[in-house]
Design a protein around this nucleic acid. Structure first.
Length: 302
DNA sequence: ACAGTATGGAGAT
DNA sequence: TCTCCCTACTGTG
């Protein structure tokens, strides 16, 4: 389910499965026939993500740009023997000798130029999963935050302020820092916002490594153990599945192998249930068209 | 069979 | 603030 961690994990999987080799690209569903023709037979140079945008770079300066939206999925799988017939509405299928990838339900699928990639990234705020790369500075988001009276909860979902955060991470990071979701952006303490940024920088790589949103301290402790002290940010997300081996065949490398977590959060979708910290009832309210969840007693900070 | 829901976003009003 | 789009799955009749 697509927040930023999903896209970065997916980029890693696609990169590992397709980079450096020719790919056949089709549109079994028929709604991306022209775009697929532009890419079909080209060598894949690599794949990466910024915020919730996915970019698959093909030779000849052709870039497949995908946004999964609310319901999109992009499965990257091995094919052993015959290629399986497409199931459901497969808008794009990529295939090489060993792997195939099926895209369904995406809100945006287009072929763009490297210049258009830059323009897309320029419209986004800094991405906590891109920390350390040029221009990806939380100070940029802070400048935007200080200029708006919209609630901090809305700001966290505004991709032009901070890129990659969705409804789950938003609710959870606000709770983790005990921030009142309704505080106007311009009333949020700089220290609070930067603490949330730093927390996202630490949290999102666990989401990438495990393919799940992990926000409970108890989960993160188990996750750290599973990685054996390795930095999740240095973790190769492609290890999450079956991938092509060095020369033919497949390998399944996965430090987090077999480690799955119950879907469990501090506040997300827990309306009516007791707060894990203070026991008061978790509340919910529609805010700018999205369900917000928070603890009215714990979250009072600015 | 149909309604409702979902971790998103754009465009109209 | 509303309306629509994208798809799969769940619950209801």
């Amino acid at each position: 389910m697509p927040e930023g961690h999903t896209l970065h994990r997916l980029a890693g999987a696609l990169h590992h499965a397709f980079a450096g080799r020719q790919a056949l690209v089709t549109s079994p569903q028929g709604r991306f026939v022209e775009g697929a023709a532009l890419l079909n037979g080209r060598v894949v140079e690599g794949a990466d993500a910024f915020g919730k945008h996915l970019f698959v770079h093909f030779a000849g300066e052709q870039v497949l740009n995908v946004h999964l939206g609310l319901i999109g999925s992009f499965d990257v799988l091995p094919h052993i023997g015959a290629l399986p017939a497409p199931v459901g509405a497969v808008r794009v299928r990529m295939v090489n000798e060993q792997m195939y990838a099926d895209l369904r339900g995406a809100t945006l699928v287009q072929v763009i130029s490297p210049e258009q990639v830059e323009a897309t990234i320029a419209r986004l705020g800094p991405d906590p999963l891109r920390v350390g790369t040029p221009g990806n500075d939380p100070e940029r988001s802070l400048a935007r935050l200080a200029r708006t009276s919209r609630t901090v909860a809305e700001c966290l979902m505004d991709q032009s302020i901070i890129a990659g955060v969705g409804n789950v991470y938003r609710a959870e990071v606000l709770f983790r820092h005990r921030i009142d979701p309704f505080v106007p952006g311009n009333k949020v303490k700089k220290k609070s916002w930067l603490a949330m940024w730093d927390d996202l920088v630490a949290l999102l790589p666990y989401g990438v490594a495990f393919g799940q949103i992990l926000t409970l301290d108890s989960q993160l402790e188990v996750a750290r153990d599973a990685l054996g002290g390795r930095d999740p940010a240095a973790y190769d997300p492609s290890w999450g599945g079956i991938m092509p081996g060095e020369r033919g065949g497949f390998v399944r490398g996965d430090a987090a192998r077999g480690v799955r977590f119950e879907r469990d959060y501090y506040v997300y979708k827990r309306d009516g249930q007791p707060c894990l910290v203070c026991g008061s009832r978790i509340r919910t309210q529609l805010l700018a068209g999205r369900n917000l969840f928070w603890c009215g007693r714990c979250q009072r900070r600015h």
